[in-house]
Design a protein around this nucleic acid. Sequence first.
DNA 1: ATAGCAGAGCGAACGCCGTTCGCAGACGAC
DNA 2: GTCGTCTGCGAACGGCGTTCGCTCTGCTAT
Lengths: 254, 254
Amino acid sequence: MPELPAPASRRERLRTQTLQELKAASLAEVRERGAVGLSLRSVARRLGMSPAGLYRYVDSREQLLTLLIADGYHDLADHLLVALGTRPTERTAGQAAEPEVPLIAGPDRDVAERIRAVALAYRAWSVAHPNLFGLLFGDPIPGYHAPPGGPTVEAMNRFGRALAQPLIEAWEQGRLRSHPALDAEELAAPLAPMGPAAGELPAAVLARLLLSWGRLHGQVSLEVFGHHHWLMPEGCERLFRADVEVTLRDLGVC
Amino acid sequence: MPELPAPASRRERLRTQTLQELKAASLAEVRERGAVGLSLRSVARRLGMSPAGLYRYVDSREQLLTLLIADGYHDLADHLLVALGTRPTERTAGQAAEPEVPLIAGPDRDVAERIRAVALAYRAWSVAHPNLFGLLFGDPIPGYHAPPGGPTVEAMNRFGRALAQPLIEAWEQGRLRSHPALDAEELAAPLAPMGPAAGELPAAVLARLLLSWGRLHGQVSLEVFGHHHWLMPEGCERLFRADVEVTLRDLGVC
DNA sequence: ATAGCAGAGCGAACGCCGTTCGCAGACGAC
DNA sequence: GTCGTCTGCGAACGGCGTTCGCTCTGCTAT
């Protein structure tokens, strides 16, 4: 979120500052108690405000959650971009202590190392913020659908671009191995009318992206939600690293 | 859940019947509105009971949810077992319309086909019951930890065994391809002290099980929670089938 | 057969929640 | 300085999970 120059009247400055505090307090609640446990009254108590007062800044509890979702995607995207060597020190949004990025591989590094870096960063962020991971990727908010042009989809797109970046590079370098199951035309066909985010990505690359993302996401999801941890108390990270290596071989870059 | 012979007094019969109705009504609520939307008062209204009356059968809303979780694992396990050709017609628990099992491969079929069958059944069940999938694999209930010997873990174990069954067969047939990233000793080491469910499974097989499950689970999770659907309106099933084929090749059975 | 007791169910209440409404004060524009 | 908009608040409504004490029913032991 680039800071707008906006000279902004005193009123407006106070307003945006209050809204930032509101989001920060809500974020803290979500981190501690999960998205389900977010209570407007409790947030109001933190801010020393009346519950009704919050409604000057937020339409409803649900809309507040979507604000946090957008921020969450931005935070995760920032994290991935750090792993890719972009955006070296900025890190404005996430004011709470951020997890270390386990591996940084800038644009000059081999593409396999860059994929590794983004995958490890994805897991590191998710494990460090399980409740935020749940907010982004867990049960969807019952009635909610993101408005097409809104800040939520923009944040999701930024995240998606960061995730796709090294795969696109691999494709540009001609290093994606062809695969009978992945290059079948019946797979590429439904991908042709792709969403607004995909841009000019060829279907075969998009297919590999979704597949690879899905794999890593599955491991992370099972770990964060406690399903791996229960069968395998230790070693989730090693299992994840093994999956990354297998995926790199499948892609052909390693 | 085998039906106990239990001649049971009239009181007891009525009691268990009421409890079944209670669970059925709650299940319907969860199916419609999701686990977050489950309301004891609403369930009581469905049953024509007072809200307080429910507490004769259930300790709390949370405990009711865990009952549904256990039932959900059993239902999913049943579904997988049907795909494996076991348990041909019984299907007692799930009284609501169950999804068709897309592929049935009995014990006489090739192990690759059996893995395919269980994977497709996993997805079919999840897509057919998104809110139940969320109940089992979405955000965990904030404060809850399954009691070690309880019915929940028993149900999870039954599900895990069904999932592992064809992989074990592949291993017994010596058809699991060795893989540098998966047979590394540092991966097997943390798996050695495995949970109560794993039994005598060798670590390398357990590692492949968790890896393969994680992959498929990731695709299903992203699809059910709407993340794939948004980038790729159609073709989730084809993408999933492609992932299954890639996984089969990785395992070496195909 | 009957006395007594455990089980089942209910109404009322408590404290929490999200949300709305009307009112009061503060700020900014003219 | 005046007026309108913005900000905040107290009170209230309906819904929620949960508890308590009461009644009534059915079972069981004598």
